Amino acid sequence: MWWIYALLSAVFAALTALFAKVGIKGVDSDLATAIRTVVILILAWAIVFFKKSSFGLFELTKTNWAFLILSGCATGLSWIFYFKALQVGKVSQVAPVDKLSVAIAIVLSVVFLGEPLTLKTALGAGFIILGTFVLIA
């Protein structure tokens, strides 16, 4: 079931790039990111309240809070740089470079989380890196 969510994530990420490229035309990329963030904030909280998940808010530990805040900061910076890249570059070049995050995440998961690096995972990351360079060259 996880792969269905991951595939949907990929589809919506692709749509994000297309919609953003059209939406930022003639707009400051930071302003565009802020508008996008407000929309996401409203949508995310609407889902939380619809699913009645807000009760879990009181069960979060200090570690949960710290790493969720760090994750939010990383996401925000990612979006700011992504929108700036889309504003000055082509979607067909920006999107593949952005997807290098997959290979970077694999390396970081091995180094910091102690996840195993299998031959299959290493080859997959290598192909992602190679594919990125093929697409942007």
Rank of each mutant, 00 (worst) to 15 (best):
I35V: 13
I35Q: 07
R36F: 02
R36K: 02
R36V: 05
T37S: 11
T37G: 07
T37V: 08
T37D: 03
T37P: 02
V38I: 15
V38S: 12
V38C: 06
V38N: 07
V38D: 01
V39N: 04
V39S: 02
I40H: 06
L41M: 14
L41S: 14
I42V: 15
I42A: 15
I42Y: 02
I42R: 06
L43T: 15
L43E: 11
L43S: 12
W45T: 13
A46M: 11
A46K: 03
A46I: 11
A46C: 13
A46P: 07
I47C: 10
I47Y: 13
V48T: 10
V48I: 15
V48D: 04
F50C: 05
K51L: 12
K51Q: 14
K52D: 04
K52P: 02
K52Y: 00
S53C: 07
S54W: 12
F55K: 08
L57Q: 09
L57G: 05
F58Y: 11
F58G: 13
F58A: 11
F58I: 07
F58S: 07
E59W: 06
L60T: 08
L60S: 10
T61D: 10
T61H: 04
T61A: 08
K62E: 12
T63P: 01
T63V: 11
T63C: 03
N64Y: 07
N64E: 09
W65Y: 11
A66R: 13
A66G: 02
F67V: 14
L68A: 15
L68E: 03
L68D: 10
I69F: 13
L70F: 09
L70P: 01
S71P: 01
S71K: 09
S71C: 14
S71H: 09
S71W: 03
S71T: 13
S71I: 08
G72P: 10
G72Y: 04
G72I: 10
C73F: 11
C73L: 15
A74P: 04
T75C: 11
T75F: 06
T75M: 08
T75W: 03
T75R: 06
T75Q: 09
G76P: 07
G76A: 08
G76L: 04
S78N: 06
W79L: 01
W79F: 03
W79P: 00
W79D: 00
F81L: 09
F81E: 02
F81Y: 12
F81C: 07
Y82C: 07
Y82H: 04
Y82R: 00
F83C: 01
K84G: 01
A85S: 12
A85R: 04
L86C: 10
Q87N: 09
Q87M: 05
Q87R: 01
Q87T: 06
V88E: 10
V88M: 09
G89S: 13
G89Y: 02
K90V: 14
K90A: 14
S92C: 09
S92W: 00
S92D: 12
S92V: 13
S92G: 15
Q93I: 15
V94T: 14
V94S: 00
V94C: 05
A95D: 05
P96F: 04
V97M: 05
V97R: 01
V97I: 11
V97N: 01
V97W: 00
V97G: 03
D98K: 02
D98R: 04
D98N: 06
K99E: 08
K99M: 12
K99L: 11
